[in-house]
């Protein structure tokens, strides 16, 4: 690995760097070009929405950033560090987080255990053979996260018994564990009730200022309320970038997406 080895090096590398810097990312699935030459820079603390029709490549882009799979070409930099070939867990340990469009939870464990695992994963002693005591700091932060996403009542419920909306809330909580530096939200509002939706917006808007994120969202209301910049994707390419207002009014965007789409 060619990562900066010392903490000091890593910090200095991140001092002026963008939170996320994608250069020429392409992804092929056989003959299918899912992503083609994507270049994006997101500065620390920035909140960006990624819009695009079904199959535009939004989720694939997230997968390349988090290392769920590697891009066919291009580089990914995270706070200045080249993480293109890092395994997923190394990226997460550096402060990257994500949620999944299709919930990826631990069905055989309780809500609390799911969140506790998320907290432990970005902490020390992942192999610890000792049960956490009551003074365990991670237990407390897991308790906090349970409250943040309003799952207090369902804390001890098995994930397989949760409602769809609760699963989506848990999905969010797991991405907020530890000290995230940048979060990728993949359609967090899809399938939520209006109440759950406004709770979600509240959580997103309430995140600390330094915590930037990218949100993929079909619902323009949600997307434009929580983000300060927008990237439009189409057929694996970036189609348009700009401020929410510009994008909303852009005739090309309206013709392609807002008019004929399912948004």
């Amino acid at each position: 690995m060619n990562a900066p080895t010392t903490v000091a090096e890593r910090l200095s590398a991140s001092g002026t760097a963008n939170a996320l810097e994608l250069r020429g990312i392409s992804k092929l699935f056989g003959a299918l070009v899912a992503l083609s030459d994507i270049t994006i820079s997101v500065h620390p603390g920035e909140r960006r929405a990624v819009l695009g029709s079904n199959g535009a490549g939004k989720t694939t882009l997230f997968n390349c950033i988090t290392g769920d799979f590697l891009p066919s070409s291009g580089t990914v930099r995270f706070f200045g560090e080249d993480i293109t070939t890092f395994p997923a867990h190394e990226r997460i340990r550096r402060g990257l987080r994500r949620t999944y469009q299709i919930s990826q939870l631990f069905a055989g464990l309780s809500v609390f255990d799911n969140i506790y695992l998320a907290c432990r994963g970005v902490s020390q002693n992942r192999f610890s053979l000792r049960r956490p005591g009551k003074d365990d700091a991670l237990m407390a932060s897991a308790e906090d996260l349970v409250r943040v996403v309003h799952l207090d009542e369902a804390k001890d419920t098995l994930v397989s018994e949760l409602s769809y909306g609760q699963q989506r809330q848990l999905e969010i909580a797991m991405a907020l564990s530890g000290a995230p530096r940048f979060i990728l939200f993949d359609e967090p509002a899809a399938g939520l009730s209006p109440t759950e939706r406004s709770e979600l917006i509240e959580i997103l808007v309430g995140l600390p200022d330094h915590m930037g994120f990218i949100i993929i969202e079909h619902d323009m209301d949600v997307a434009l309320r929580v983000s300060e910049s927008v990237t439009m994707m189409h057929n694996g390419r970036i189609f348009k970038e700009g401020k929410p207002a510009e994008i909303e009014e852009d005739p090309e965007v309206q013709a392609l997406y807002l008019g004929g789409g399912d948004g």
């Binding site: 769920d68 395994p87 867990h89 695992l117 970005v122």
Partner: peptide, 13 residues
């Protein structure tokens, strides 16, 4: 056991 992919995305090897 339940979801290896998610475990990696939580920072576990």
């Amino acid at each position: 056991r339940d979801n290896a992919r998610r475990m990696a995305a939580l920072g576990y090897n």
